[in-house]
Amino acid sequence: MTGSATLESHRVDARPSRPRALRRGALIVGLAVALVALVLVSAGTGQLYVRPEEVLGALLRGLGIPVGPLPEHPQGYNALWTIRFPRVAMAVIIGAALAAAGLLMQAIFGNPLAEPGVVGVSSGAALGASAVIVFGWTFAGEWTIAFVAFATGLLATLIVYTMSRAGGRTEVVTLVLTGIAINAFTGAGLAFLTFLGDQQAREQIVFWQLGSLNGSRWQQVGIVLPLIVIGLVVAFAVTRSLDLLALGEKSARHLGVNVELLRIVVIVVTALLVGSAVAFAGIIAFVGLVVPHLMRMIIGPAHLPLLLTSVLGGAVLLLAADLVARTAVPMADLPIGMLTSIVGGPFFFWLLRRTRSKAGGWG
């Protein structure tokens, strides 16, 4: 009877009531509008100010649509397309990837505390990227950093998955402790690589640890974008299966879900998304924790709308954080990972307390 009630509850959520459907639609539209507005404002803000309508005109002209005014400054158009637009594009892409990765980890672990930065996946990917820098590996050309970051991120994800599973479920305490252990190990590895590397390599490793979008180029966008698009396409394809998995493993199997295959696919996709993001932006924590939870609180647990809103919300959050990083201190570029941690740290503490109180204590 309990299983039937749970299944019926899932069916009700799959076909949301009119107020919930309107709330979902309003949230998606609101996030899309906020993203467009932030793109125009962020691209035009800096030492060389460009008005939003001029940013839009330059963007459309660059895409072959002769509409809107061009920047009045003679170097404005080139500055936008050479410096500003690549950085904005990377913020949008990486923010979407990190939020989607966080949602997928929470779904597959069945745990609200799962997040690439918290459980050590981001630092694992950063360790691989730093090893490429120090040892000068070039076996895959421009893809070498992304490839190695993906491999080490995947390894970290598999370790977390294996260590935190017990009796067919994920233990909260084990998940957090496994993340602490992985972060400690990768921290030691990064320190060792810093010791081995030259001055330039040390500066780049510090870049990975702090997280930054400074220096983003179209070449990097061309490498990261196809990888993240593939990851997001697969993520959207498995949202129905994730809804069924939320009913419990036994119910999901009865409804035709290959649970183990689903887990493997999601783990690989998570590593792909996180590894691609870390490869060129370094460690940017808590985006995958904060955004999915906020979206879930507003629209409920159904994974298709939740993934869509999380992707948009992650892009908005990281683009806003990057704007603050570039403008908060004159003539300086703050580490974006520091800013997301300022928001995410207290949120994680609140979530940890909330989860503990719901579980009745962890003894």
Rank of each mutant, 00 (worst) to 15 (best):
M163Q: 11
G167N: 08
G167L: 03
G167A: 07
G168C: 06
R169V: 10
R169S: 12
R169K: 14
R169M: 11
T170H: 01
E171H: 11
E171S: 10
V172K: 06
V172H: 09
V172E: 09
V172G: 04
T174K: 03
T174D: 00
V176I: 14
G179C: 02
G179V: 04
I180P: 03
A181H: 05
I182L: 14
I182W: 13
I182V: 15
I182D: 13
N183P: 04
F185P: 08
G189V: 11
G189N: 12
G189C: 11
A191V: 10
F192I: 15
F192Q: 14
F192L: 15
T194Q: 15
T194F: 11
F195M: 13
D198T: 04
Q199L: 08
Q199H: 08
Q199M: 04
Q200I: 01
Q200A: 05
A201P: 05
A201D: 15
R202I: 04
E203T: 03
Q204A: 04
Q204M: 02
I205R: 03
W208Y: 14
G211L: 02
G211W: 05
S212P: 02
L213T: 09
N214Q: 14
N214D: 12
G215M: 02
W218L: 00
Q220P: 00
Q220G: 02
V221N: 09
V221I: 14
G222Y: 06
G222D: 13
I223H: 06
I223C: 02
I223T: 14
V224G: 07
L225K: 02
L225W: 05
L225P: 01
P226D: 07
P226W: 04
L227V: 02
L227N: 02
L227M: 09
I228R: 07
I230D: 06
G231Q: 11
G231P: 06
G231A: 07
V233Y: 09
V233D: 11
V234P: 13
A235D: 14
A235E: 15
A235I: 11
F236K: 04
A237H: 11
V238Y: 09
V238A: 06
V238L: 08
T239F: 09
L242T: 09
D243Y: 08
L244N: 06
A246C: 09
L247V: 10
G248V: 03
E249I: 00
E249K: 00
K250S: 09
S251D: 15
A252W: 05
G256C: 05
G256K: 05
V257Y: 10
N258A: 09
N258L: 02
E260C: 01
E260T: 10
L261E: 10
L261N: 11
L261W: 13
L262H: 08
L262N: 04
L262V: 06
V266H: 06
I267N: 12
I267Y: 14
V268T: 06
V268I: 14
V269Y: 09
V269T: 15
A271H: 00
L272F: 00
L272S: 03
L272T: 03
L273A: 01
V274M: 01
G275R: 02
G275H: 01
G275A: 00
G275T: 03
G275Q: 01
V278W: 03
A279R: 00
F280T: 08
A281F: 00
I284Y: 13
I284T: 12
I284F: 12
F286K: 07
V287L: 14
V287Y: 15
G288W: 13
V290F: 15
V291K: 15
V291Y: 15
P292K: 10
P292M: 14
